[in-house]
Each structure stands twice: as C-alpha cells, then as structure tokens.
Amino acid sequence: MDNVKIYLNFFVEYLQIEKNYSQYTIVSYVADIEDLFSFMKEQAIIHLEEITYNDTRLYLTELHKREYSRKTISRKVSSLRSFFKFLVREEKLSENPFSLVSLPKREQKIPQFLYEEEIEQLFSISDCTNPLGQRNQALIEVLYGTGIRVSECCNIQLSDIDLYIGTVLVHGKGGKQRYVPFGSYAHDAIEIYINDGRKSLLNKLSKQDQHSYLFVNHRGSHLTDRGVRHVLNELIKKASLTLHIHPHMFRHTFATHLLNEGADMRSVQELLGHSHLSSTQVYTHVTKEHLKKIYLSHHPRA
C-alpha cells in the first residue's frame, strides 16, 4: 500500500498550502483517512482504485457497529469524500467511490447559553484589586463581549487590540481575519488589566521569555484553552452557580443575546466569523423560544 501513503502525503500538502487548514484540522483528516486504510487491509484491498461503492457501504456499516455518533460518521465521510475528490482532480483516480454516499442527518442540538442574570453573577465575582482578578474579568468580558472562539481569544496579541476605537483583530479558522468590536465594559476591563495586572504577571518571566499575548497565566506564560476552562470553573465555584459552563457557552450567549435584542442574522454571522449562514441559524431555535415566551406572556389572546 505504498502508493496509498504517497497519496495521503499529497493530500496533506494540499490541505496545508491550498486550503490553509490548521494543524488540528489536518490531524483529524489524516486520522479519518488512515481509519479507512485499516479497513482496506482487513478487506484485502491493496489499491485505492479497487474501492467500490459497495465497499463504502460496508465501511459505513462498520462505523455504525462501533457505535459512533451521526456527527462523527458525517465528519469521517466528509473527510474521505474530500480526499477522493482531490485524487480525482489530480488524475490519480478515475472516480470518487464516496461521491454517492449520503451523509447521515445530524442531530440538531440547541446551543446552551447563559441568562443575563447568570452573566451578571459571573461578572461580579472577580477581585479586580489583584492581577489574576483583573485578568479573569478581562477574559470573561472579552469572551462575552465579542463572541470569539476560545482559541481565538487565547491567541490575541497586544497589537491586535485597538482601545481607541474598541476593536480586536481576530485570527480565525483557515487563516481568516476579521475585526470585532467590543463595548465599554470590555474596554475598561482590558485597559486595567493591560496597564496593571498583566505587567505584574509578566514580571515573573525572564527577559528572554517575554511575549506579546494578551492573556497570561499565573506564571506569566501564554494562557491556553485548558487554562481558560480552569479559570471559568473557578469562577463558577465562587459564584455558587449550579451550572456546567464550557468556554464556548460565552459564544452561544453572545449570539443568542444579540438576536434576542433584534440584531439581524447577517451581522451576527459576520461577528461570529461563520463562513455559512446555516451555522448562525442554529441560534434561531433559541430565539424562537424566547419570542414564544414573550407572546404567551403579553398577547391578550395567547
């Protein structure tokens, strides 16, 4: 199966150079494709051109036997379809055996979000007289005030922040960049943190280890996604909220609150950095419930 590995390497180069995908995304593609290679060995299939539509059906049956979720199976099929489409484009294969495979319908989960009272509770917890309290306050104000992804938040550099006009340059998925505005609460929290708390935390580092990341941990190093989860868990404990909050909930809350207050879908799509409007439309399920409650509460004939 030497040519199989060569084709995979070609595909990885394509994802890196032409598609500009992140390393995390590429690793997922490779894992999905190598899983098919393992299946090929079990079925004594040596060359990719030997795979037929019937083989793809057998492979899908195998995935169902492993009790993978519909979301996982959809991702794997999508990865393999892209891989074979690339090989057909490069004239390595004559046809794509996954082109006729239909993706299983994904379960439509309503995004979890925080109510305004819960958000207010979280904002009142941090002790802004010490460096970590200032960092925590700035962190949750940025997450809620911009709706950016946690990975995007962790990678903000000082040069990305414009306090004068209240915007942050966000480096999103696939190398895409966008400017996202933030309000006065986030502005004040960021300014206090940059001028005071961040400087104190950075003093713990040696000169050669200094960096320009906005958010730092208690040792002064770059704050990671995992670090953000720890910060939020600690805030939840202090607030005595019986919630299981994951960092992405701030993004869900940002979008839901904007739509509830009358923001249009296209603007929210742009702020979130979604490539497709369908990704943003999932939040309409939440806002419809909100509108229904208002209707039932206020309409005389409800």
Rank of each mutant, 00 (worst) to 15 (best):
Y7I: 02
L15G: 09
N20M: 06
Y21D: 01
Y24H: 08
T25L: 10
D32K: 02
I33L: 03
F37V: 03
E50A: 07
T52E: 12
N54Q: 13
L58R: 09
T61K: 05
H64R: 14
S69P: 12
T72P: 09
T72H: 06
I73P: 03
K76W: 05
V77M: 12
L80D: 14
F86N: 07
L93M: 07
S94Y: 11
N96Y: 10
P97E: 04
L114D: 15
L114C: 15
E117V: 13
E118K: 13
I125N: 04
S126T: 07
S126H: 03
C128R: 09
N130L: 02
Q134E: 13
E141H: 13
E141Y: 09
L143T: 08
E152Y: 08
E152I: 01
C153E: 14
I161H: 04
G166S: 09
G166I: 07
G166R: 10
V168R: 12
V170S: 03
V170G: 08
K176E: 07
S184V: 14
Y185G: 15
I190E: 13
I190K: 04
L201K: 00
H211F: 02
H211N: 02
H218P: 00
S221E: 01
H222T: 00
V228S: 04
E234T: 09
S240E: 15
H244G: 12
T256S: 06
L259Q: 08
S267T: 12
G273Q: 09
S275L: 05
S275G: 13
L277F: 07
Q281I: 01
V282N: 10
T284R: 10
